[in-house]
Amino acid sequence: MNDAKHSRTLTALLLAPAGVFFVFLLVLPLLVMLVYSFGVRAPEGGYQAAFTFDNYLNLPARGKAFTNTLLLAPLATALTVLFAYPMAYFLAVKVSPRWRNAMLVLVVAPFWTSQLLRYYAWMMILGSKGIPSWLEWIGIADVRLLNTPYAVLIGAVYGFLPLMVPPIFVSLEKLDKRLLEASADLGSKPWQSFLQITLPLSLPGVATGSMLVFILLMGDYILPQFLGGGKVYFIGNALVDLFLQSRNWPFGAAVSIALVIIMFVTMYFYMRFVLGKTDQRRVAMV
């Protein structure tokens, strides 16, 4: 009896600090933000208590930020998968186990260096003194790359390739090679085996990687700020503007809530359909 009580106290003590963090830095702030989103902007900026849905009805005023984000984030995620998959395949299948880990670390390493500086480097590469001036040299004039959607897409592939490769790599590496042998024995051509075995079995890795990258892209600020230069802006840029420049906190709160809701709804459907399907496939395989 005493022992059980003792044990319960210990459990409570172990969980208490995290509980405090979750309540005071996650749940309460999100609730405060929800309350703010129904308020009005105080004359000097900030928040004034009220109860109105105007902020939500006014969301189309930042519609461009929403459409940009909802168009470019999934597109950039798909492009990253496209570029990451062959790389992961190469590392998991073609490279000898001896070098495999070292080469994977080389792919991931850039992610651990300053994001700001890496995107800044791309500002230089895509800027007027970079690729456009090289193209001009070979006769293609007037190419503008920086501050276009293309720059944002290139930056996204560059920035998130290091995150996308490892999960795909893991799912390809633990793939049972005997399945491929069996498939070859049964007369499949290599591309048939790839389409029918390798690809479906590596989908969980693709799904994990895409989820990671998609989450980070949806809330990104630096990438569109640097490579979109105020012309191609995301919800994150609209939020910084609303909170720090125009100081319209209630409207900013409504935009934040909308972003969180969009994220959770997409994640829900994503998990339900994409992950659900890959699970079924795995079951069907067994």
Partner: peptide, 18 residues
């Protein structure tokens, strides 16, 4: 999962407001 999924920018803003 929520604290990992909510974008950093929203965490920043909501913490600021709170």
């Amino acid at each position: 999962y929520i604290s990992i999924m909510v974008p950093g920018i929203v965490i920043g803003i909501s913490t600021l407001i709170a």
